[in-house]
């Protein structure tokens, strides 16, 4: 059982830089987290919803609505998109933050980030090319589409993608390193805008008009002082065996 004060659960502190299997984490008891794992099993950011202002409430709670059908991506692209989102964000089971739908909605509505690399097409075209490229690489390497690959195979492809090393097919129409930046930025922004992800990481969420009083500065309270509504982090209180060496 990792000790949270030791930091030995952090990938860079571990041999090979690999993450621990999440089996060491407690199951969420209150509210929802992605895959029902997290470090704050008794914290639910939505318990504070009555302290949020109306405008914020509207924007954040809309993310909890059941996701609708895809509007931007085609049915051919959908499995690749879902497989990419699952792999990049390590969402291997339900409940999932609907990252694919959130990305799809942004692209359908043209809510882009305001810049485009000169050696790249429009972000919307980049997304389509990336999905085609992933299928191209998967077919070459594993004789199946990206969505049909095993998790380890998808991770191997995404790892090459992250390092800008994929070539051939649609990849030749892209600067692969820039393409990685375009797609992962949008996936991360979607995932970590979702209240379930805030529950997982213990983020306090919207804070207007309530604000914070206990900032944890110098003085008697010390840095670890908490607001009454903040829950401390925890490890698993119903221990299961930690899978240390992650064998698949």
């Amino acid at each position: 059982m990792p000790d949270l004060t030791s930091a030995d659960h952090l990938p860079k502190r571990r041999p090979g830089g690999a993450a621990l299997h999440p089996s060491w984490l407690p199951r969420q008891r209150r509210g929802t987290t992605p895959q029902m794992i997290g470090r704050y099993p008794d914290f639910n950011v939505l318990d504070a919803v009555d302290t949020w202002d109306e405008a914020t409430k509207k924007v954040v709670l809309a993310r909890l609505e059941p996701p609708g059908p895809l509007r931007f991506f085609t049915s051919d692209e959908e499995p690749v998109l879902r497989a990419l989102c699952d792999t990049v964000l390590a969402q291997d089971r339900e409940p999932r933050v609907p990252v694919a739908e959130m990305v799809d909605g942004k692209l359908a509505d043209g809510l882009l980030d305001g810049y485009q690399y000169a050696d790249m097409p429009d972000d919307r075209d980049t997304w389509r090319l990336v999905l085609r490229g992933l299928d191209h690489t998967a077919t070459l390497g594993y004789q199946t589409g990206f969505a049909g690959c095993a998790e380890a195979q998808r991770e191997a492809i995404v790892s090459e993608f992250a390092q800008g090393r994929l070539v051939g097919g649609a990849w030749d129409e892209l600067n692969v390193a820039h393409a990685w930046s375009v797609v992962i930025r949008m996936m991360l922004a979607a995932f970590y805008s979702h209240p379930w992800a805030w529950n997982e990481i213990g983020f306090g969420g919207p804070a207007y008009p309530r604000g914070f009083m206990r900032l944890g500065g110098p003085g008697a309270d010390g840095p670890a002082v908490r607001e009454p509504f903040e829950q401390p982090g925890a490890t698993d209180e119903d221990p299961v065996q930690v899978v240390d060496a992650w064998e698949r």
Binding site: P11, V88, A90, I184, A189
Partner: peptide, 25 residues
């Protein structure tokens, strides 16, 4: 959190490692 995710990503982490660092926010 979104800014923090970009920070973790820039250090070379995605997937399970990213989620681990994010949980440690």
């Amino acid at each position: 959190p979104i800014g923090w995710a970009e920070h973790v990503l820039a250090d070379g982490h995605w997937g399970w490692a990213l989620r681990e660092y994010m949980r440690d926010y």
